[in-house]
Amino acid sequence: MSRTVLYYFTPQSPWTYLGHARFAELLRASRREVAVLPVDYGRIFPASGGLPLPQRAPQRQAYRLLELRRFAEHLGLPLNVQPRFFPVDGTPAALLITAVAQQDGADAAMRLAGAVMAACWREERDIAAAATLAELLEETDLPPERLREAQHAEVRARYDAHTQAAIDAGVFGAPSWLVDGELFWGQDRLEFVARKLGL
């Protein structure tokens, strides 16, 4: 049994935002390690039969907004279901989180990921903008040079490798967790993740 939970997500996902803090609490309670793995769903969706949001049927798009409102109210989390900067390219933030995970560790990457998601879904900030990402590094007490390092080919290669690993593991949506070889998808499945963690 691995002590490490694999956490696959994309930073512009509202569902990941809704589950992130609760997942962090489960990690603390279970004393498990985590691999923070932002991945490219632009590659995962075609490989898994999924569709990007703008290509989904109007009924599905409308129901998504309804469910986001329901879950935000249920969880007591502030959420703008149609934020100013969305759709947004999550790649710059994903690469930055990848760089931070590599250089500063999982706890720092979890902290930054949570800040990025909140910036998008609660604060309506542009998480694709370098200026916003620089602010978020400062707000989470992380080195400013990570923004430059996130552009390195090595970080991109790591991001691509994590994406391929997610595809190989059967990941198709965000957020997803791999716990002791078992896959869980969706913030509404965190109760099952907790059980798997023995909580």
Rank of each mutant, 00 (worst) to 15 (best):
M1L: 15
S2V: 12
S2L: 11
V5E: 01
V5C: 05
Y8T: 01
P11G: 11
P11Q: 14
S13E: 09
S13V: 10
S13G: 10
P14M: 11
T16K: 14
T16G: 09
A21G: 14
R22N: 15
F23I: 11
A24H: 05
L26V: 13
L27D: 04
L27I: 03
A29S: 13
R32L: 13
R32P: 05
E33P: 13
E33F: 00
V34A: 08
V36A: 05
L37K: 03
P38A: 10
P38S: 09
Y41F: 15
G42D: 10
F45L: 08
F45Q: 04
F45W: 08
F45M: 09
A47C: 06
G49C: 03
G50T: 12
G50D: 08
L51S: 03
P58V: 00
Q59H: 11
R60I: 07
R60L: 10
Q61T: 05
L65G: 03
L68S: 04
A72T: 09
L75R: 15
G76I: 05
P78G: 06
V81D: 11
Q82G: 04
F85N: 06
F85G: 03
F86R: 13
P87D: 02
P92E: 02
L95T: 00
I97S: 08
T98F: 13
A101L: 01
Q103E: 12
G105A: 01
G105H: 00
G105N: 02
D107P: 08
A109R: 00
R111K: 14
L112K: 01
A113F: 06
A113L: 06
M117Q: 14
C120V: 13
E124R: 08
D126M: 12
A128M: 12
A131E: 15
A134H: 13
L136C: 11
L136P: 06
L137W: 01
E139I: 14
D141S: 14
D141M: 09
P143F: 02
P144I: 02
R146L: 08
A150P: 00
Q151N: 11
A157H: 14
Y159I: 02
Y159M: 04
H162N: 14
T163Q: 07
Q164D: 11
A169S: 04
A169V: 00
V171H: 06
G173Q: 13
G173I: 00
G173Y: 05
S176A: 07
W177P: 07
L178Y: 04
L178T: 07
V179F: 05
V179I: 11
V179C: 08
L183S: 00
L183M: 10
F184K: 00
W185N: 05
W185R: 02
W185Y: 12
Q187S: 07
Q187C: 13
D188C: 02
V193H: 04
A194Y: 00
R195A: 14
G198C: 15
